[in-house]
């Protein structure tokens, strides 16, 4: 007996059943996964743009802007930016004032920098009182004309942050990402 029909029938059946099973599974797990992602996102937005009561999503020029309102007044804009770090991609959530002149908050969504060195951008265990000192520096930082960093010294201007000693590359990467994306996003939103 030729087994040509058998080949076709068996393989088709297996794929059919597989498709059906996976579709069932998806309908069950998707809400949960989406829900989780939403929570994460909202958390990040809430962290970089506190004091809001409504978030409005606007997609434009490759950015998704989350516009935060308080009592019908635009208080800030958040969006996700990414760029190359020392050895991986850095993904950040950036919250800016509506005219993009001031950073309201910054959160690192994902980073795989050198453990114990580059990872200090997120959490510096050697600084017991304030492990997040590096990222907290960005709060209320002015963005104009551009952000810069200094090494082994306290920042003297309101657009400066202090780099992590030994992890200058990671520190510099964040500053670079912010500078380029703020400029691009400005253009996308048509500010000046």
């Amino acid at each position: 007996m030729s087994n040509t029909p058998k080949i076709i029938i068996v393989l088709t059946l297996i794929t059919l059943i597989s498709g059906a099973v996976l579709a069932l599974l998806d309908s069950y797990t998707r809400p949960k996964i989406d829900n989780y992602r939403k929570i994460q996102e909202n958390q990040a937005i809430a962290e970089v743009l506190p004091e809001n009561d409504r978030i409005n999503e606007v997609a434009k020029d490759g950015y998704v802007f989350y516009e935060a309102y308080r009592k019908h007044e635009l208080v800030g804009v958040a969006f996700q930016v990414s760029g190359g770090g020392y050895q991986s991609e850095l993904v950040l959530m950036l919250g800016l004032s509506p005219d993009f002149s001031r950073i309201i908050g910054l959160k690192i969504l994902s980073q795989v920098e050198t453990p114990g060195l580059g990872t200090k951008i997120e959490k510096d265990e050697s600084n017991k009182e304030d492990p997040g000192w590096f990222i907290n520096q960005f709060k209320d930082l002015r963005t104009l004309p551009s952000i810069s960093y200094v090494k082994n010294a306290s920042p003297s201007r309101d657009t400066e942050i202090q780099a992590i000693s030994g992890a200058t590359v990671s520190s510099k990467a964040i500053v670079d990402i912010l500078n380029t994306h703020i400029k691009k996003a400005k253009a996308a939103r048509g500010i000046e």
């Binding site: 080949i7 076709i8 029938i9 068996v10 393989l11 088709t12 059946l13 297996i14 794929t15 059919l16 059943i17 597989s18 498709g19 059906a20 996976l22 579709a23 998806d26």
Partner: peptide, 15 residues
């Protein structure tokens, strides 16, 4: 749709 597309693919490759 899922089952159909998977099955279709399966049918195609099986053929």
């Amino acid at each position: 749709i899922a089952a159909g597309s998977m099955g279709g693919l399966g049918l195609f490759f099986a053929a």
